[in-house]
Write a protein that binds this DNA or RNA. Structure first.
Lengths: 160, 160
DNA sequence: CCGGATCCTCTGGGATACTG
DNA sequence: CAGTATCCCAGAGGATCCGG
């Protein structure tokens, strides 16, 4: 368990499933959050905000790549592995499971021999895909600036 | 060094700075990538695509939160730490440095006593902020579906 | 108040071998 | 071919102390 816990928060953590992996320590009851008067939109900053969990799901390199890949068209497991360079078998499966759990990806098994498994974006996943796609565009458009900035930074002698 | 290396790629890796931390193993010469005939927009999947590096920068929970926070207004270091619940001193500094290196955040020091440091989004950072903001919106709108899906998934007895 | 330096823990993630 | 189970290590990240 991580140390930040529910420190100081009015202790009503009630999404048992959420906390199952170390990354997302959850989070308080959703209803509470929703009933609360509209705070700062970025109550995301509070550990208690369930939205942070969604961050955990898209804040994952592999997940983004997988979603992006499925955005083009449905794929079978092996295709994904070959398409996404550098992903390991383990991480692929793991990522797909998580996405499936979150309802972003649907998994379809064909009991053929050899076995075959297809992955599809759900409508929910597709909607997120829109953002992923913008991310890709942004990257392509601004990669130059970023790289330049990095070079400048690394050259500078007086960085903090 | 990670094992995926430049396997099979026409070996022209030339961004020394990139590889400095383990996370982004880089990546091939940018010019090459750009000169290449327009491939699949998601050549991001190739390890050789510099765009992946940008992914590394936004694919970081803390970075997203920091950018989101600065999106509201400039902040001083301490404010950020207090605002973003759960971030440690170390991670905050580290994240800010990375964002600064990438040219997304500007750091301004006031030689007062006690010292004071302000952080501001650069125009570049602000443009990325647009996407970050959409991410937040998406999260708020779809968190219910995601949570429901998770509960369903966890209840189901026959998951893979 | 800002943040660098250390130490130490724990886990993310690769490599490998095995089942159906 | 798809997926699980094991082993194992580098490095992400927290806690702490210190110095400007």
């Amino acid at each position: 368990m991580v140390s930040i816990g529910y420190v100081g928060v009015d202790s009503v953590p009630k999404h048992p499933e959420c906390a199952q992996d170390g990354t997302n320590r959850c989070l308080g009851d959703l209803k509470v959050t929703k009933a609360d008067p509209p705070l700062n939109p970025w109550n995301v900053f509070k550990v208690t905000c369930p939205t942070r969990q969604v961050l955990n799901c898209i804040t994952d390199k592999w997940a983004v790549l997988v979603v992006g890949c499925l955005l083009e068209r449905d794929r079978r497991s092996g295709e994904l592995r070959r398409e996404i360079e550098g992903i390991s078998q383990k991480m692929l499966t793991q990522t797909l499971r998580a996405l499936e759990r979150d309802g972003l990806v649907r998994r379809e098994v064909f009991p053929s021999v050899p076995p075959r498994v297809d992955y599809t974006l759900t409508p929910l996943g597709r909607s997120l895909g829109g953002i992923v796609d913008q991310l890709r565009e942004w990257s392509e458009q601004h990669i130059d600036q970023v790289l330049q900035s990095q070079q400048r930074y690394d050259k500078a002698p007086d960085k903090p």
